[in-house]
Design a protein around this nucleic acid. Structure first.
Lengths: 214, 214
DNA sequence: CCGCATCCCCAAAGATACTG
DNA sequence: CAGTATCTTTGGGGATGCGG
């Protein structure tokens, strides 16, 4: 008899699903892809998941080695959840899932969280295009969506860094606005309330390389 | 309000999970990766899933465009389930999941189905090694596991074909045995009851390229 | 037979309230 | 802030049965 409700198969796919196949599990992991978060942050990012479900998923994901709890050093002292190295290796899974999901015959609808917008940019960014000399540029971007700040660094046409945190004023471009406005802008609504400061050409290169999909 | 129990997000990952995130859904798809199957075949391959769950998943997967029902031409006349082109594009997802799952800190245990053994060979086969001239070989393999027969073709060090069906006697090697015996053999149990007929060297190349993992 | 539908039971998810 | 306790609702597991 399997522990909880596993598939009881030795198949590597089934084994992966034993770890991250439960409802909300993979979305919890997604929320940690750009860095550690506290319980309340996760709760706010995943409004559909109740606190009991969330705490249970966190416990199970910790037991299976996908994430770990950590207490930040004083004076912060907050408890945060962060991916283990093995959990961080789920990136190819996210990439494959997102690229598959984007081709769905049934349309996607709904809001994108600030994190999802940034992760989408990275997912659909075409790293291979860096072989084309005309597309090998370098730039530092800062995105300010709702209350969250992200730093994105492109070096020679490749995304080298995407992290929660600011650029200390060193950004070539700063994009600021509500996450909904930025989402609409990426979907082609050119009139939405997004503030762009700095090198617009660098921003266009980024959006072009990402195919303007998120 | 979302249709059934979707995540209600526009995120491409969440949207993918809306389609294949439900319990058993991705394992149903896995069962169809090597070709169409009938309902009873699926039921036999997934003993843990009850008939109600199975038929429901099939209906949902059909609605979301992952698979379709088809009636085989006479005299067979059987109803089979097969992947749509979009469903077949889940291959990178399986590849990423399997390669992640194999690195799990908690050990895998349990039986491998005949299909899973063959799919594992393909998943962990190193296609990139084909750049090495010493590993560019060509061979036709036939595997007979339990009642199932598989044809696997390697051309210039790459797996060009893996299908349910025999080789019409044209195979360079034939591997026959129970799926459990073959699984044990691949796990290193050299004494298990597997019959190998033909070019053993070609078989060794294949197992080596797959890292003997399934 | 094969392809499900129905039924019953339990476990998991959803919602809300509450506590160390 | 970070969860637990509790209750209701929904979905999954397993058996049985029925129509084509």
């Amino acid at each position: 008899m399997p522990d909880r409700r596993g598939y009881g198969e030795a198949c590597a796919v089934a084994h992966a699903l034993d770890a991250i196949g439960d409802r909300w599990a993979l979305l919890v992991v997604r929320e940690l892809r750009l860095g550690p978060k506290r319980y309340s942050d996760l709760q706010a990012s995943l409004p559909g998941a109740g606190p009991n479900v969330l705490s249970r998923r966190l416990r199970e994901l910790e037991e299976s080695g996908v994430l770990r709890r950590r207490v930040l050093p004083p004076p912060a002292g907050a408890r945060v959840y962060e991916l283990t190295p093995w959990g961080a290796e789920l990136e190819p899974v996210f990439r494959a899932l997102a690229r598959w999901g984007i081709g769905s015959p049934v349309p996607r609808r709904g809001r994108l969280s600030a994190d999802s917008i940034m992760l989408g940019l990275r997912t659909f960014f075409d790293n291979e295009a860096a072989t084309d000399p005309a597309r090998r540029w370098t730039a530092l971007y800062e995105f300010r969506l709702d209350q969250d700040v992200y730093r994105l660094r492109v070096v020679d046409g490749r995304i080298e860094e995407l992290i929660r945190g600011d650029t200390g004023g060193a950004a070539d471009v700063v994009v600021a606005g509500s996450s909904t406005a930025v989402q609409q802008a990426l979907e082609g609504d050119i009139g939405s309330a997004v503030t762009i400061t700095g090198d617009r050409e660098a921003l266009n290169r980024l959006l072009d390389a990402a195919g303007a999909r998120v």
